[in-house]
Write a protein that binds this DNA or RNA. Structure first.
Lengths: 256, 256
DNA sequence: GAATACCAATTGTAAAGACATTTCTTGAAT
DNA sequence: ATTCAAGAAATGTCTTTACAATTGGTATTC
């Protein structure tokens, strides 16, 4: 590995700011397989000596790779190439719960509760759930993992009428709802991307700033009543959502 | 605005590293509306004096807000609160082109070509398009904007058989395909999140590292033949994908 | 009035040094 | 053998200083 970070490697490296050259050098070493997942990089001070840069500049070059999830730093230990997470693919357009989804592909599911209880609703929850005055909201917040790797943060809100006692939910919320005859049959999801903040990044065991998939879901009973309003954050490197598209009917394509 | 960044504000600010306290202070000022989109922040040197920090520390505190897209820095000019981009919502499950999608909501579409031509295919393209030996691939790469705001980078690959002359495509690829009787009727999309690299971030006019939605789409003719393989990057702050979910049939839910 | 040149202000890059905090290994004591 | 403590090593935080590159306004000149 020693030959990657020689001062000479910079001359051929295309110019630009020094920290970007270092960034490029490391990124290419990872892409080309010279550095494999789990490999450790030289310490920052060693890198500084090897490349002839100051430690501050080395840190800046490394920082971007950390915040994009390609490197992992552990204080007192070192800097390592991030372990590769195999992407899971979820079929959109089928309304399934996380638990069901994972079981279908034969993976184990772990849940860690962050919070569970009845609260006064936030304005957003009043809107989404169509709550009446004085009605309280049941909040279920947990980290979903599979094989020890945290994959998503799930924050579900339900009307107290639907779920009077949040403590009863232990495993699958949908299984629980089904047993009470209130399983949703339809849902609308909105998907966008966002940088994870420090708190959420820690829950998902990645560096702050890494890209995550943000999903908002509102699910409905056959009657049209809203059942749940869930905001989830998925690790961008661990999840793929797949969806099949069909041609829009001619009438819808050009409405004017 | 002067009262936001007094040294005293730090004492009440919850502790932790100084750059995080500054980060929090600014983030909260934006969230609470004390700082509105377009507002300018004091210069880094002024901030350093006001808060009693060094400029390096101020820069570190500000940097995270820049890389998550909340602030915008312009060298020689200053640091500003990022203008709010209204989120566009695209209905998934309908196969439409960007052009059609924007026209339907009455917005204008601008395209800037990055590249357009015939190339030797990458392994990924051979896989996706089912190319034969020696076959070449037509690549269309452009930045899609609306009202002057870049929204997405679109990188489409088509077999040479489908599109012998890429230069013919000027506006809508789908319109072009339709005129040749090769409009796709079905497509499969995969959606994930990723941090934008320096090159893509510049094309989309955001800071590197900002979260983007990455979408891979493979579309098919009625015959089942693959038409196009497109990789797009959408600005995470500008786009929402909406999809409606339906309950899976009982047989599919627990296949064992 | 318009174009140009200059200058001040602002962010961008980089170095060197200092100390704090955490981790991991090593050696000693039990 | 096990436990515990010490210390080395690594990243994390922060300061001070210097210069480069870009921007935007101002004064000057034509």
């Amino acid at each position: 590995m020693g030959e990657i970070f020689t001062p000479g490697a910079f001359e051929e490296s295309g110019g630009g700011p020094l920290y970007l050259q270092l960034h490029r050098l490391i990124a290419e070493a990872i892409a080309s397989g010279q550095l494999k997942p789990g490999d450790s990089l030289p310490s920052e001070r060693e890198l500084a000596v090897m490349t002839g840069l100051s430690r501050v500049t080395v840190r800046k070059g490394v920082a971007e790779l950390v915040s994009s999830g390609q490197l992992v730093q552990r204080r007192g230990s070192g800097t390592f190439v991030a372990p590769k997470v195999e992407k899971l693919e979820q079929a959109l357009s089928l309304l399934t719960s996380f638990t069901e989804d994972m079981e279908r592909r034969g993976r184990n599911v772990e849940s860690r509760w962050i919070a569970r209880g009845l609260h006064a609703p936030a304005p957003e929850e009043v809107m989404a759930l169509g709550l009446g005055a004085g009605e309280r909201v049941a909040r279920l917040e947990r980290v979903r993992s599979s094989d020890g790797v945290p994959l998503a943060i799930e924050r579900a809100s339900l009307s107290q009428r639907i779920l009077p006692d949040p403590e009863q939910v232990t495993d699958s919320l949908y299984a629980m709802l089904e047993s009470r005859g209130q399983r949703p049959v339809r849902a609308v999801q909105r998907i966008s991307a966002a940088n994870l903040n420090a708190k959420d990044a820690e829950l998902l065991d990645v560096a702050p700033g890494v890209a995550g998939l943000r999903i908002e879901r509102i699910s409905y009973l056959p009657s049209g009543k809203v059942v749940e309003f869930t905001r989830s954050l998925y690790r961008g490197d661990a999840y793929d959502f797949a969806v099949e598209l069909k041609l829009a009917p001619d009438g819808e394509r050009n409405p004017q």
